[in-house]
Design a protein around this nucleic acid. Structure first.
Lengths: 134, 134
DNA sequence: AATAGATTCTTGACTCATTCCAGAAAGTGG
DNA sequence: CCACTTTCTGGAATGAGTCAAGAATCTATT
């Protein structure tokens, strides 16, 4: 699977890829801990590098909502979007909005060549929502 | 104008607000420099604080595309979106997409209470686009 | 206008995610 | 199995942003 992306298959990379699959929307530290449960000696640098390489290869997607640290997810290639909780930072997946029309269709591209449209919905997750209203 | 938001009118705040109006999509450092051209003694802390307060009050909007530092803009209340250049980080405004329908309409809210939909278009600005193809 | 009281600013240290670097280790093609 | 290249380790560095304490400034009131 890594080989398909012309990447070297190293122990750290396999572990990182597995961790991203096992922990959707996890931040780097969570992934680092998950990886170390399996390979206690990996450096954080290896994790950062693996994530970068895999992001560049399209095996993994990087998400970084304003005010939060970077997260990674393994669901790629289907152009879905995210709901982010303003309070706790929880992230949920959302399929592409109504009719898929808005994705990649700006009313005026201002001369830019657009290759992706990213939608982020902001709000409160069920937990934080009830907590705040009580 | 600041008074309308129940904020104290201090010299730094006036200067910061002016700088945000004068430099759309500017990062904090740019704003800091612009402010210091007028009030050489302002601390960066004052700028950060002013921006936070004004963001909370809705006088200013914070934008933070993945991988770039935070920017601020003064155009608020009209729910427009942005095009970001992957290469140089330039930002341009785009009015709300087709029919305004997608804004605030997730196909499935997963139990979240959504209050805002943010759309970011990624691509290359005219300058970087021609530079890369040459 | 002067004063009291509270918010806001200055200064400077500090956090923490992420990056940079050099040498050691491990993967790959031949 | 070897040589070559990429990747990993370990540790230091960067830089946006935050924290904290005391000084300065703003607002409402007299």
């Amino acid at each position: 699977m890594l080989r398909g992306a012309a990447l070297r298959v190293t122990r750290p990379r396999v572990a990182v890829l597995g961790a991203v699959h096992a922990h959707p929307h996890a931040d780097t530290e969570t992934i680092l801990h998950a990886v170390r449960r399996e390979l206690p000696k990996v450096s954080h640098q290896a994790v950062y590098d693996s994530l970068h390489v895999m992001t560049a290869a399209g095996l993994v997607r990087r998400i970084q909502p304003s005010g939060f640290v970077a997260r990674y997810e393994s669901r790629v290639g289907d152009n879905h979007h995210h709901i982010v909780c303003r309070s706790c930072g929880a992230i949920a997946d959302v399929d592409c909005a109504v009719g898929e029309a808005p994705c990649l269709a700006a009313s005026d591209d201002r001369g830019f060549s657009i290759d992706e449209a990213e939608v982020v919905y902001w709000g409160l997750c069920p937990g934080c929502s009830t907590q705040r209203s009580s």
